[in-house]
Design a protein around this nucleic acid. Sequence first.
DNA 1: GCACTATACGAACGGTCGTGCTATCTTGTC
DNA 2: GACAAGATAGCACGACCGTTCGTATAGTGC
Lengths: 211, 211
Amino acid sequence: MNQPTPAEAPPERRRRADGRRSRDAILDNAARLATVEGLEGLSIGRLAEHTGMSKSGLYAHFTSKQELQLATIERAQEIFEAEVLSPARANADGLQRLWALSDEFLSHLEREVFPGGCFFAAVGAEFDTHPGRVRERISVFIEEWVGELVAAAAAAQQAGELPADPDPEQLAYEVDALLLMAHAAYTMYGDPALLERARVGLARLLGPRPE
Amino acid sequence: MNQPTPAEAPPERRRRADGRRSRDAILDNAARLATVEGLEGLSIGRLAEHTGMSKSGLYAHFTSKQELQLATIERAQEIFEAEVLSPARANADGLQRLWALSDEFLSHLEREVFPGGCFFAAVGAEFDTHPGRVRERISVFIEEWVGELVAAAAAAQQAGELPADPDPEQLAYEVDALLLMAHAAYTMYGDPALLERARVGLARLLGPRPE
DNA sequence: GCACTATACGAACGGTCGTGCTATCTTGTC
DNA sequence: GACAAGATAGCACGACCGTTCGTATAGTGC
């Protein structure tokens, strides 16, 4: 009933090179600005001004503000992948990777990859009370991130690098708590000592870094 | 140089009983709605509609939106005092109070005193990148809250209820991290098990509840 | 009970929001 | 080099924003 046939699929609009470049520039700015102004508070006009193009020119790349927000999340996810997940995955599964995930996360805060700290912590706090497609995508990503922590914790336990007592989910929760706190405190006060406190807490939780 | 004399102080406008009642109702709604819509996203019009009065009638109680935001923070602080700090302070200083502060905080999340979780976590995440008087007041309150945790941790250590090893600031940081995580996770997913995880983490940090 | 004034309202302001429409450039394809 | 289509800009819209103003109503101190 009303099922779209393949023939009715969107006609696969071809993209021009300059258009793709513009779109990339827009989303780069959007991902970074959203951690400062918020994903909702970021207006099309200001984003256009900041990108150096007209409001309608920018808007032509998206069918609605919500599509822009979803594309921004996707771009932020790519940045997070490149800056945190990918380097951490270069480490062996288990305790080493768990430490690497934490260290890379804290490093991306310190390097201020996003001016407003962790993108997903920032927009997650904004959209946790706003049901819809945007919130859905954010929460899915957070679940994947937590899953990554849980998997590393479970591997560490199976390798005997960590005691089995707090189950992997609990361990991931406590690690994530320290990372979230580091984001919140460092974004609010800007003092690197507040990142170091998270590292101290992690050492109490995981023991010293392996190797 | 341009120093205000006492005579120039604001003429102490007298308040009527019904006006005070209206103002209280406005701020009650504002404090709760701000955890959902955000302190900036909450518009005068919607707040007025939600309170059952006209936009201009509501606005007459404040000289600007920023004054309304500051008054809202003050009201939220009173609520937090009544729902969390005051009951916790009924406990003896030291480990007992540290546990009470944590439990009362988690309880106020579970009872949904604010629909968007912890007021100061929510608006703190919104304003951490917005310098100004609003952010200043929020950060001052957070410092006071952390100070309360630090003081209780220090007292617990001096009473020999906790090892002296992680200094009180570090201990307070880790406790606060679990509480912040509980707020974020519970607000996003609504699962009480996510509050329980914080309690488990606290037990690993502080040992079992005393008495 | 009267005079005073805090309170509340309706209307309107300049501005910005997201969103369309149309025209004009610019790029890639044959 | 012509031509279809993508990219961008200009303009305008209705809605809502914070804010102001004039005015009617009603609580309070004398």
